[in-house]
């Protein structure tokens, strides 16, 4: 089945935590204060984080499962 999951451009991430705050599934954590990490098992691909991200560096990527 094709699913969409949030993917973060780690290099550009400022680790501000806006995505973590908005995620309704609490699928995002800030890894050691360096970048946002998406738990792909919890992510439902709603896209709220991508919309919220002030740097617009989160995209929804299609993954096969």
């Amino acid at each position: 089945m094709i699913k969409r999951k949030a993917a973060v451009s780690i290099r550009e991430c400022a680790a501000c935590g806006c995505c973590m705050k908005i995620c309704p599934k609490r699928a995002i954590t800030i890894h050691k204060g360096i970048y946002a990490n998406v738990n792909k098992d919890l992510c439902v691909g709603c896209g709220l984080c991508a919309k919220e991200c002030p740097a617009s560096i989160i995209t929804l990527e299609v993954t096969e499962q």
Binding site: A14, C16, C53, P54
Partner: peptide, 10 residues
């Protein structure tokens, strides 16, 4: 830009 754009370059 976006509400928390400041956070990007703070």
């Amino acid at each position: 830009c976006k509400p928390r754009s400041w956070c990007v370059y703070c």
